[in-house]
């Protein structure tokens, strides 16, 4: 179920080969990653903390050098042409990078100057972006007065000031409450649609990746375990779950003998749970089978697999919350967000 193979290489904005990073002390954070990311996609890395997501993003965004392997972004090598790569990409790191002692607009203007943007263009673009994330009235306020959600929104647009071709978002909603998170998703979708930007996103929130990403790579212990669309990944679990409750155990037994049933189990003697390959196609056949055998269920339920199940299936464990990583910095960020 690996995402469709080699087409023409110019379709791909980011290509990596065996990208790996071993930190001093022998910690193998990333153990050889091969990626092909298409233009205009939102590409999501899903994995627990410490899986290697941030390290991968930091290598691609030239903050740290890979130990081995290569990668190009828009044809620029991340080691040889790191300056060109930095001009091409926008990054929203996990840290809060804006300066609290400056105003929102001053932060944007400062970063624009890093890209040698003329001041007038920078101001215009900054105003546009502030409007995009509903911060228009707050541009002239000091960042120290911002709430956590506003702060994250500002971070998001600082990465966009120079119109990058690719945007990296490292855990864009870490530490935000559910409502603010949903709002951030809207902004991210808006950015994709309005600017046609390729977005690389990391998250350990399943819903976030499911909601936003066109292609998902599940990453754990520094390796990509599986890649595909959310649909493909769920399908790769070999089926949806059908659960039916009958008046009598006999009827349940007959239903359990259905020809396309995969691993039928009986949680109770009158309840059948089975997997079917594709419930959309299978349910009509199941209905016919039930009519033919005069089965009348009292309850009938079909559930498509969630990304939770996909993760569990491929990694053998639940996605862990809050573990490893740079806890000191994370706590600091959380504290600053909570205001």
């Amino acid at each position: 179920m690996v995402h469709n193979g080699d087409k023409m290489s110019e379709d791909y904005i980011i290509v990596t080969e065996k990208l790996a990073k071993t930190y001093p002390g022998g910690i193998k954070a990333v153990k050889g990653i091969d990626l092909k990311i298409k233009k205009g996609q939102i590409y999501g890395f899903l994995g627990p903390n410490g899986a290697g997501k941030t390290t991968t993003i930091k290598m691609l965004s030239t903050s740290i050098k890979p130990t081995s392997g290569t990668s190009t972004i828009m044809g620029y090598d991340i080691i040889e042409n790191s300056m060109e790569v930095r001009r091409t990409i926008g990054v929203v790191p996990q840290d809060l990078t804006t300066d609290e002692d400056l105003k929102g607009i001053e932060n944007l203007e400062m970063v624009a100057k890093f890209y040698d943007m003329p001041l007038n263009d920078a101001r215009k673009k900054a105003r546009e972006l502030l409007e995009l994330v509903d911060l228009t009235e707050f541009g002239d306020k000091y960042v120290s007065t911002y709430s956590g959600g506003m702060r994250k929104r500002l971070e998001l647009i600082v990465g966009l000031i120079h119109d990058p071709a690719v945007l990296f978002l490292d855990e864009p909603t870490l530490g935000l409450d559910v409502q603010t998170r949903t709002k951030m998703w809207d902004y991210i979708r808006k950015i994709k649609n309005e600017f046609g930007m390729t977005i690389v996103l990391t998250s350990h929130y399943l819903e976030e990746v499911d909601e936003l990403a066109d292609i998902i790579s599940i990453i754990d212990h520094g390796k990509i375990i599986v890649t595909g669309t959310s649909e493909e990944l769920k399908k790769s679990l070999q089926g949806d779950i059908v659960e039916a409750t009958f008046a009598s155990p006999d009827q349940a037994k007959v239903f359990g003998a259905y020809v396309n049933a995969i691993d039928p189990t009986f949680p109770k003697e009158n309840v059948v749970r089975m997997k079917v390959k594709d419930s959309d196609r299978e349910v009509p056949a199941i209905m016919q089978y039930m009519m033919k055998n005069s089965l009348s269920p009292t309850r009938f339920n079909v559930s498509k697999p969630s990304l939770d199940q996909v993760f569990l299936d491929y990694t053998g464990r639940e996605i862990r919350e809050e573990e490893a990583g740079d806890t000191r910095k994370m706590q600091m960020n959380m504290r600053r967000l909570r205001r």
């Binding site: 965004s61 030239t62 903050s63 300056m83 930095r86 001009r87 990409i89 990054v91 790191p93 996990q94 840290d95 809060l96 990078t97 804006t98 300066d99 609290e100 970063v111 890093f114 890209y115 600082v158 910095k329 600091m332 960020n333």
Partner: peptide, 14 residues
């Protein structure tokens, strides 16, 4: 570095 501003500088073309 502690506050995170450094992360921005390191990904900028400076």
């Amino acid at each position: 570095r502690r506050l995170g501003n450094m992360s921005r500088f390191l990904v900028s073309p400076i």
